[in-house]
Simulated assay, not measured.
Amino acid sequence: MRVAALLRGINIGPNKRIAMPALRAIVESLGYQDVETYLQSGNVVFTPKGRGDYAARLSRAIERETGHEVAVLLRTGAELAQVVEQNPYFVSDPTKVVVVFLGEELELGQLGLGDLGPYLPDELTAHGRELYVSVPNGQGRSKLMEALVKRRLPTTLTVRNWRTVEALAEMTR
């Protein structure tokens, strides 16, 4: 079984800088195998060894090695394949559809966004532990994405664009 670890908030801005070779070394130090990183934004795919909470173990190892507290969300290859399959949006530009990965499933009302009308043309669809967001004008101009990431939600979240989601799904196959 291959899994993708999605690290929240690393290599964005001046804080929490982790080089990908260092991240691979940390993951390998846990005995995980076939370790690959994708881009510089905290995506690492590996084959876990043993049992337990792989995300918590990785988070603790990163903090021990770098001093950075980093939330880690995991998705198996099967879960990522399902994320790809369940995308409700047409993708003509993979940077204009994003997936918000959640630590646990939330109801739309728990997001605290209210009526989504003021966020148009952006659209949001919740499905399990993922939120699919269509951002036709891009993430940087999206009032919906801004509102989502500024909310204090009762769970961890991290965002990946569609190109990254598809790449991680392929890497975990």
Rank of each mutant, 00 (worst) to 15 (best):
V99G: 14
E170C: 04
S41G: 09
L157H: 07
V149T: 06
Q86G: 13
D34V: 05
E65W: 02
Q139M: 08
V84D: 04
T164K: 11
R51N: 05
R129V: 13
S142G: 02
V3N: 05
L39Y: 03
Q86A: 15
R160Q: 04
D115Q: 10
S29K: 13
A167S: 15
P14F: 03
E79W: 15
E65A: 15
G77L: 07
V70G: 02
N137L: 12
R163Q: 06
R8V: 08
A22I: 03
F101R: 02
R24K: 14
G52V: 06
L102R: 04
M171C: 12
A22M: 09
R64L: 14
V135Y: 00
R64V: 13
I26H: 10
I18Q: 14
R8K: 15
Y119L: 02
H68Q: 12
R163I: 02
Y119Q: 08
V35G: 14
R75A: 11
G67D: 11
V91G: 05
T37L: 01
A55S: 08
G114M: 09
F101M: 04
P94M: 00
A56R: 14
N137F: 08
T172G: 07
V133A: 04
G117N: 08
R60V: 04
M1S: 15
T37A: 01
M171N: 06
N87E: 13
E36Y: 10
W162Y: 05
Y32H: 13
L7G: 01
T156Y: 12
A25E: 15
G103D: 07
E170F: 06
A167M: 07
D115F: 13
A19Y: 04
S41K: 00
G9Q: 14
A4K: 11
R64H: 13
P88H: 06
T158A: 10
R2T: 03
V98M: 15
V99I: 12
P88Y: 12
W162A: 07
L106W: 10
I12S: 08
M145D: 00
V100G: 01
K96C: 06
I62T: 11
S142N: 05
V35A: 15
A22T: 09
P154Y: 13
P94S: 03
G50M: 05
S29R: 07
P88A: 09
V97C: 04
L116Q: 02
L148K: 11
E65Y: 03
A81T: 00
K143C: 00
L168D: 02
T155N: 02
L157A: 01
H68S: 09
I18E: 11
W162H: 04
Q82S: 04
L39T: 09
K96E: 10
